[in-house]
Design a protein around this nucleic acid. Structure first.
Lengths: 188, 188
DNA sequence: TATTAAATATACAGACTTGTATATTTAATA
DNA sequence: TATTAAATATACAAGTCTGTATATTTAATA
């Protein structure tokens, strides 16, 4: 496969934007810093992305795809339908460990730009709804004991994942996510 | 009680900062906008608060106090120990309705400034730990059925509150918080 | 090899950022 | 009423922000 020049540059820009937006935050990361650290020309950035907001959107879209690809890989490795649900917590926990308890890219983007740009909000909603739907399907197929309804269990797991990540990014440890796993295990 | 001039000005500054930091975000709110909308002089702001970060800290501290005062009032009105726990969800839900699903002030501040200023992070951790401790005490006194341990139930409620607020601020509705209440009711 | 598209370097516009400095006016207190 | 502290208006420094413009160099393709 031939790799186009444009691809390489766009990827360098997105890689750098992702790193900086996630670690420092979107609003405190200037275009000039992205340009400098990506080692590309500013005109190239604005040829690939119309504005800083468009760069944020592209970053969110790519994150959405990659995040679910990795999650799907993890879940597919597991046969037991209840274990599939529990691995959601492992996945979240491992990712928090890996990225230094930086929290969730979508929640962060929502808190920084979600209230001022509806395209950004829509992208974040799409990703979170995707997660909810993904959980819902696993719940339906889990054969859980029906102490809670399918809908309740789905909402419970979703909220514990979101709350667990938030707790991780505030307290800088993933104990809550581990505890969440044990709780869900009892309720399955 | 005599009201000092300094008090009035500081309050006007804090009121405006709170409104703007919460609605727009901390990083996109300039000192000049706070000065203009609070209708005070810039020198007055810097006489009361050493820096913009100190203003953020003062805002977080005041929010911490007021938020728990109101919560305490709500909980004290209720006699039944299990209902005390359930009212946590009502409180969170009502506040989300009231402020237009803007999410949590502490989570927002954490995502905007928590990773670059350790004083800000410490203030946020203090508030969230306070909430966790508050829940823990209610759980101990709740006489719940011990399907989960006290510690597990505390963590569960904490995570559902955090996750429920995050969901509210992303999806612009508080259905999850209402569902969370029903779930906890089943587990009590 | 000639043409075309992509990426580059550099400079700049115009607005905004936090924080400081200075001089003046207001209001509370002794 | 005289003194003192608080708040004000205004200007400014030095830097940053997003986005554009221009001219040049690189590399892929026909």
């Amino acid at each position: 496969m031939i790799r186009k020049r444009g691809q390489v540059v766009a990827d360098k820009i997105l890689d750098t934007a992702e790193r900086l937006f996630f670690k420092q935050g979107y609003n405190v990361t200037g275009i000039n810093q992205v340009v400098e650290e990506a080692d590309i020309a500013k005109a190239s950035l604005y040829k690939h992305f119309e504005s800083k907001t468009d760069l944020l959107l592209a970053y969110l879209q790519r994150t959405h795809e990659r995040w679910f690809d990795r999650l799907g890989d993890d879940v597919n490795k597991i046969a037991d339908p209840k274990e599939k649900l529990l691995t959601l917590f492992d996945y979240h926990r491992e990712r928090q460990l890996k990225n230094g308890y930086n929290g969730c890219r979508f929640i962060k983007a929502n808190d920084e730009a979600g209230m001022s740009d509806e395209r950004v909000l829509a992208e974040i909603q799409k990703a979170k709804q995707h997660l909810k739907d993904f959980i819902a399907e696993l719940v339906v197929n889990s054969g859980h004991q029906k102490l809670l309804t399918d809908k309740e269990l789905t909402g419970l797991i979703f909220m514990m994942l979101e709350g667990g990540i938030v707790a991780a990014s505030i307290f800088k440890q993933a104990d809550d996510l581990q505890s969440a796993r044990a709780i869900i295990q009892k309720l399955l």
